[in-house]
């Protein structure tokens, strides 16, 4: 039997007539028309004032604002991540006081708008004119004027960081819970302490689940920093607003700022892809391809098809 099949060899590959898909062509035509209309608008509508946008795109105060936006994003995410890990571990504690405190933190900071929180920190001096360290209900050893402790940069960092901590803790908690229980058991059986197990075994595996939403949060934070303009603190939007209150070119400046935000978030997206790829190690048999590898594969497929 088997020798028969090998003698006959492999039958010729199927060359069927492909199914016609007229719906696709109609959709393509629709998209093309809308694209042409938009392009027409961008090019012919003078109110976009592209030359005005070009004039300010690399203006010193815009670049200064971008720098501030970037470090504010990084600092707020760093605070958020550090807080998030701590709160998540507290939340998973078997001690009800500890996990309750973590729950309360998340409840407050996730349950109120971040803009309100920012304004709260910016005006904290109105609530507590001085802040001191001492015994509760007893004497105070050190007293500071709140205004000196919480300048607008501090208010911006507190507002963004504490709020992010609440979201981050839920992301980290989900990541920790996603790791198989057997992992902790195996580490414990080998004599690792709880902290070593968390740091060496559980968190690295949790990262796979944590990184995608973390990237999401970072991109979201990049844009949320624009709320800091109302603290007020001089980030990108604040500086752009300063420009258009002088020039009255509101729309061109807002579009220019949006293009900058879009550019920065695109770069973050690429970064996220590579970080995800790093933490996929061991979880998938083959790492997902880099964009360059993907492009090369598509190209070789195309040329292969042409040859066939």
């Amino acid at each position: 039997m088997t020798s028969d099949i090998t003698a006959q060899g492999r039958p010729e590959a199927i060359r069927a007539v492909p199914v016609r898909r007229p719906g696709r062509w109609i959709a393509v035509a629709g998209v093309a028309v809308v694209a042409a209309m938009l392009l027409n608008m961008f090019l012919t509508q003078p109110n976009f004032n592209w030359s005005e946008q070009g004039k300010y795109a690399f203006n010193a105060s815009v670049l200064e604002g971008i720098r501030t936006t970037l470090w504010l994003t990084a600092a707020a995410m760093a605070i958020g991540l550090a807080l998030g890990v701590i709160i998540a571990i507290m939340r998973l504690s078997t001690n009800p006081i500890v996990s309750g405190a973590a729950w309360l933190y998340v409840w407050i900071f996730r349950g109120t708008p971040v803009l309100v929180q920012l304004l709260f920190w910016a005006n904290i001096g109105a609530l507590l004119p001085t802040i001191g360290i001492g015994v509760p209900f007893g004497p105070e050893f050190l007293t500071y004027k709140t205004f000196d402790l919480v300048p607008s940069v501090m208010a911006a960092l507190l507002g963004l960081g504490l709020n992010e901590g609440a979201y981050m803790s839920e992301i980290v908690r989900a990541g920790i819970l996603s790791v198989d229980e057997g992992q902790g058991e195996a580490a414990t059986a080998l004599g690792l302490t709880q902290m070593q197990t968390l740091r060496r075994i559980v968190l690295p595996q949790a990262m796979r689940v944590i990184v995608p939403p973390f990237g999401n949060e970072t991109i979201s934070m990049l844009k949320t920093t624009s709320l800091v303009a109302y603290v007020p603190f001089y980030e990108l939007l604040f500086n752009v607003q300063n420009i258009y209150t002088r020039t009255y070119q509101v729309m061109p400046m807002l579009i220019m700022a949006s293009l900058w935000y879009l550019f920065m978030s695109s770069i973050l997206t690429v970064g996220q892809y590579y970080i995800e790829r790093h933490y996929a190690k061991g979880a998938t048999r083959n790492l997902p391809p880099t964009p360059v590898q993907k492009l090369r594969r598509v190209l070789s497929n195309l040329s292969g098809r042409r040859l066939a």
Partner: peptide
């Protein structure tokens, strides 16, 4: 943890650390 160090355990579901290579698994503890 000190006591456990002299007792090895092998599990039904292996429980190898998936984010480490084979030799890293063996060297970890």
């Amino acid at each position: 943890a000190e006591q456990r160090r002299s007792i090895g355990m092998v599990f039904q579901r292996f429980n190898l650390f998936p984010h480490m290579t084979v030799i890293e698994n063996v060297m970890e503890a």
